[in-house]
């Protein structure tokens, strides 16, 4: 009887957020599916069903291929650069150097800033005339390397990714630090007693034990790069001429600049499916790790 009442309460409490979630998350998702089959312009109350025409267009659109390419580049950099930098920082800070807490706060600070603010800061850094980067390059005699970073289609994308990674480093550092504290010192001591040097204990003890943390870091990096929009919007709007378009930016331009809402919805659906695959892979990994530790 008590158990039954308890269940009723549980159901009651779950249903409230579930209803809200459905209305604001699940329903729009279905609308996107629906609109992706239409030629809706985002404004008119009438539109036509065009079947899978939008999806056919997605896969033949060179701008989509370009956005995919840029998102892949973004993801590859996101998985490697900030992850390795964050790991390095975490390992250094763990050694108990003086003022470690100050460094931790400093490296973590960018996380507290919104990506729009970070974008603005880096716009200044990249400013071609008095921006920090070009001024610094000139100061060390590398004048030939100076350029208009965000205006040059060769460098725009990588410059935006660098700015984004700057924030991401702090995040992966914190997660790795948390992971490191959960590693019992006895294990590394045991390794030392067995005669392992620092690199060996890192390679065979610490890194394998950091696997749960690594999965979180990599998964976050992938998911964040799939939805990368705000910093691109602030810094380049996908330009110059689409050289820094990501999938999300491309979707926005098609929907809200060109008013191809049906087509934009089709891009959203494709993006959703990609994210779904990534998340499925993530859960599989997490499950594998859990089984390992059980």
């Amino acid at each position: 009887m008590i158990k039954r009442q308890r269940r009723l309460w549980t159901i009651g409490f779950i249903s409230i957020p579930l209803v809200v979630y459905t209305i604001i998350v699940v329903a729009p998702l279905f609308y996107s599916f629906f609109y992706s089959l239409t030629d809706w312009n985002g404004l008119s109350s009438d539109f036509n069903f065009v079947g899978f025409k939008n999806f056919a267009k997605v896969f033949s659109d060179p701008l989509f291929a370009n956005a995919i390419k840029n998102t892949v580049i973004w993801t590859v950099v996101a998985i490697t650069a900030p992850t390795l930098a964050g790991l390095t920082l975490a390992l250094i800070l763990r050694e108990g150097i003086r003022g470690a807490n100050i460094y931790k706060s400093l490296f973590y600070l960018p996380i507290a800033l919104s990506l729009a603010v970070i974008g603005q800061i880096w716009i200044w850094i990249y400013q071609p005339r008095w921006g920090l980067l070009n001024v610094a390059l000139e100061a060390i005699g590398l004048e030939s390397a100076t350029r208009a970073w965000l205006a040059d289609p060769q460098t725009a994308l990588i410059s935006v990714i660098a700015a984004w990674s700057w924030q991401q480093v702090g995040l992966s550092m914190v997660i790795f630090l948390a992971g490191l504290t959960s590693i019992s010192p006895e294990l590394t001591e045991a390794a030392q007693i067995d005669g392992a040097n620092y690199w060996q204990s890192l390679r065979y003890v610490i890194i394998p034990l950091l696997r749960p943390a690594s999965i979180v870091v990599v998964a976050l990096a992938v998911i964040n790069s799939l939805k990368s929009f705000d910093i691109v919007f602030t810094m380049t709007k996908g330009g110059p001429f689409h050289s820094s378009d990501t999938l999300a930016m491309f979707m926005y331009n098609e929907s809200f600049k060109k008013y191809y809402m049906g087509y934009g919805s089709a891009i959203a659906v494709v993006l959703f499916l990609i994210a779904l695959v990534v998340i499925a892979l993530y859960f599989r990994q997490v499950k594998a790790v859990e089984q390992l530790y059980d």
Binding site: L18, V19, T22, I23, V26, A27, F30
Partner: peptide
Amino acid sequence: TFVAMVILLSLALSACTA
């Protein structure tokens, strides 16, 4: 089943107000 029902119900609700 319950979760699916709630989702369907709220979908219907949001469709009404769409």
